[in-house]
């Protein structure tokens, strides 16, 4: 028996909007720790890891670890039917091939339930090692989204370079080139508006911009985004989900041939 009650149902709506275009089908894993997902995009270039900790749910009952295969496009369609202020409850019986999403309006005057078919998904679970990164950049998520959008109108790839000067995002295309430098800026009114750069050593990596633009669909989940860069590893683009966990996107770099 599985029953997860999320008072801030809009979080789950936002999570689905953030991942549905990157991944078609995925297994949601439910355990005492929380509700999680790990999945690669179809080309195996990007990986998404989501965790919503059990403590973040108003009610969390998960009698045994279960994995529920869902089509994320269909799940997003169902969650779009929930109001932004609705409380969302996920329910599944042991051995059942369906999951029920229950939407309750804040005043309890409207209660809806949507039942979705589960699917068998043969997916591999990858071990993501703890790593030391050469540089970690925290910046406003809206700023990062703006940079990715602007650069993708010029080129297809972005070079992210972190030096003691700041973090530089560069692209080039048929019409020309673009460079955007963000310097560390901690003298702002609100901490979430700061750009903070922790650099152990300079690093420069090249990535396909279209993946970053897909990751920025998670912007509504968090005011800030963290980029962790190392020359030997995929970049990690992390959006923290307040009180609950995170959504992390891993993207393999492009390497000079």
């Amino acid at each position: 028996m599985l029953e997860l009650r999320l008072v801030q149902g809009s979080l789950l709506k936002k999570v689905l909007e953030a991942v549905k275009d990157l991944v078609n089908d995925a297994n949601f894993d439910c355990s005492a720790t929380g509700f999680s997902l790990q999945a690669m995009d179809s080309s195996h270039v990007a990986l998404v890891a989501l965790l919503l900790r059990s403590e973040g749910f108003e009610h969390y009952r998960c009698d045994r670890n279960i994995s529920m295969g869902m089509n994320l496009g269909n799940m997003a369609k169902m969650l779009k039917c929930a109001g932004n202020d609705d409380i969302i409850t996920l329910k599944a019986d042991d051995g059942s091939d369906v999951v029920t999403f229950m939407f309750e309006s804040p005043t309890q005057d409207k209660i809806a339930d949507f039942e979705m078919k589960l699917m068998d998904i043969d997916s591999e679970h990858l071990g993501i090692p703890e790593a030391e990164y050469h540089a970690i950049v925290r910046m406003p998520s809206s700023e990062f989204a703006r940079i990715c959008k602007d650069l993708s109108s010029i080129g297809d790839t972005v070079v992210i370079s972190v030096t003691k000067e700041g973090v530089k995002f560069s692209t080039r295309g048929d019409i020309g080139t673009a460079n955007i430098v963000c310097r560390q800026n901690t003298t702002v009114d609100k901490p979430e508006e700061a750009t903070v750069i922790e650099m152990n050593e300079p690093v420069s990596l090249t990535f396909a911009l279209r993946y970053f633009n897909s990751f920025t669909k998670a912007t509504p989940l968090s005011n800030t985004v963290t980029l962790s860069l190392s020359s030997e590893l995929p970049v990690v683009v992390e959006y923290k989900i307040a009180e609950m966990g995170y959504i992390r996107f891993y993207l393999a770099p492009k390497i000079e041939d």
């Binding site: 270039v45 990007a46 990986l47 090249t206 393999a252 390497i255 041939d257």
Partner: peptide, 14 residues
């Protein structure tokens, strides 16, 4: 010319 690396090059199956 850049070669796109695969995520499986970095992370192994559990």
């Amino acid at each position: 010319p850049c070669l796109q690396k695969n995520i499986l090059y970095y992370f192994n199956e559990d």
